[in-house]
Design a protein around this nucleic acid. Sequence first.
DNA 1: TTGTACGCGTTATCAT
DNA 2: ATGATAACGCGTACAA
Lengths: 330, 330
Amino acid sequence: MSDKVTIATVAERAGVSRQTVSNVLNAPHIVREETRRRVQDAITALGYRTNQAARQMRTGRSRLIAVRIEPTRDGINGSVLDRFLHGLTETGEAAGYRTMLYTATDAEREIAVYDDLLGSYDLDGFVLTGTDHGDPRTSWLAERGVPFVTFGRPWDDLDAHCWVDVDGAAGTAQATTHLLASGHRRIGWIGWPAGSGVGDDRRAGWSDTLHAAGLDPTGLARETVDGIGEGERCARELLARATPPTALVCASDSLALGALQAVRATEPAVPVIGFDDTPVAAAIGLTSVSQPLGDAAARCVDLLTAVLDGPHRTPAPVLLQPTLVRRRTA
Amino acid sequence: MSDKVTIATVAERAGVSRQTVSNVLNAPHIVREETRRRVQDAITALGYRTNQAARQMRTGRSRLIAVRIEPTRDGINGSVLDRFLHGLTETGEAAGYRTMLYTATDAEREIAVYDDLLGSYDLDGFVLTGTDHGDPRTSWLAERGVPFVTFGRPWDDLDAHCWVDVDGAAGTAQATTHLLASGHRRIGWIGWPAGSGVGDDRRAGWSDTLHAAGLDPTGLARETVDGIGEGERCARELLARATPPTALVCASDSLALGALQAVRATEPAVPVIGFDDTPVAAAIGLTSVSQPLGDAAARCVDLLTAVLDGPHRTPAPVLLQPTLVRRRTA
DNA sequence: TTGTACGCGTTATCAT
DNA sequence: ATGATAACGCGTACAA
């Protein structure tokens, strides 16, 4: 096994000083063409790689970004984060950043992790997922000037920080429009309790679309915590109405899956549309709204690197459009 | 914002030398009790955290482990890796290691990533998933003395390196035994082509169990690449036999899902059992073999840290037992 | 283009 | 047995 290759090794081989090698790496334009090439050749020949720890000591930057990996909850929605993570890692690599993982069970503990990660590893930035009203994490980071991007809007103030999100309202609007086009007039909603940014957004897409079509959504919505059982319960409630909905739009695939159980025996079939286009949806033929997660991850990296590498201005937020994936159920 | 807290800050505050602080951290037993406490207090009061980059410069160790995150394929099996990753991160944190992610599309490129990660970040170790016969990655790492653990056996030589795995054969044996106990005698198998370690292992559990019960599995197996469509096709083939199987065991939930489509109309119902207990299985009530992924991840960390922190001997491999999760389909 | 100091924790050496 | 001092690892900032 060959000895460790440092900048000194390269410098010796190329017949220049260590500093020149550093210049070739970090400011190639100030090095004479011929020298630059000689140094480059030496780097390639020796297989030199910058020692990030040493670089970090001087620059204070680690070229590391961190993201939280959540425990699989009901399992269905877990794959969303999974796909996002993969995109993040891939795009990050291309931009010269490595992705570090951490876990945390609540916001307070997550902040403690930030503190540790920042202190011990000099993390360059964070990608947060699933923001909500009054998120303590973003304020903690912002106060300390730590670069971060959220996948999810800062619901209280859209200019609070740098973010990427998918337009949930547009997604449920697409779903609702699709059902309207099929002739449905009483379209029900199964979603989450008011107060969560994501939930309210998705619900708004449904109700606004009905309003725009001159229809009244009153009484056609049910709200509950996420879960298959809950989805089924809500769907049964809606179907038991005097004037039951003839189609259902749901805030998640879990809820939609439950709803499907409830409508199984109805005649004619009650279409159901879910949200997230999870593997479960694909497997059972559930029509669902698909988020461009790879894109979202890529834009997160773009924004974060813009903050890190560029001047100190906040890049414009990014709102991506989801698409409706039509399958058996609608 | 307070200044950066280094060992010097702590030393000053505690009225000792930098060296003493270092000793308190790395060799507490050689420091006088009273001094130790005073230094500890200063560390807590100042919120000191060792700068990993500086430590790494001296020790050559980064307290970082790396694992590959794979692109979501058919999406169903993706959640397996997801759960494993979470466990790995969690257990790693507890042991003082951080988890770094990387992507790679094939073994050759993955090796190139090892090289980079080792050269640039001084990675302490790797966790590999999904080993197979003649895996080039393990030999590359072993040749260079890089610590690693695989989640998956080294199929060619069980003593080749340190590994953790789940006993797939025991899982399919459980599934088969369960069906035998329900009175089935012609139990079919839908799996992957011979030659893959994991696939052969799972198939062996099925065929060995039938043999042990004095039954002949000949003609009752179908092999194909993974996927819902393929599962359905194989199931139809099996059901079209003169003496069709009355129950099916599958090598994955994807295959089982396809098989379920094929048996939908059969009377009496043909039980189907999948493998991996994915969220999809839970959602649709598919009986499936569940791998203890959290445990597996934890044991991977245990083994890796044993190699890293302890003397240079290879810890004994770990073979975990899966469990059959009974649901509607069997 | 080059010399030199520097960042921060650890290891080796020396003093008490 | 402790504690203090000096050197070291590697890449970079700044002045020469």
